[in-house]
Amino acid sequence: MIGILFGVLVLTASVVVAGVRMFVGPNDANRVIASDLLFFSVIGLIALLGVLVGSRAVFDLVLVATLVGLLATVSLARALTNGRR
């Protein structure tokens, strides 16, 4: 139990820190990297929430989130350069 709570604490702090980096980031690429970290922290938070609440439906959510995470990252990377590779 204490391990799960520690995980929730660290992941929440990670969301906050990623938000700070997104705010102060020197350019847009740093903001994209911070949004990446924020997204993965939220995936971990969703999984830990599933354990705490005792729901199995949450794991479908985790699977879909990992699928969509790559799409979000790659499309943000394309949007950074206006489609140029």
């Binding site: 690429a29 994209v32 990446d36 943000l76």
Partner: peptide
Amino acid sequence: GAMAVVRSG
């Protein structure tokens, strides 16, 4: 994903 973002960056 990280490599794509860094290349664009």
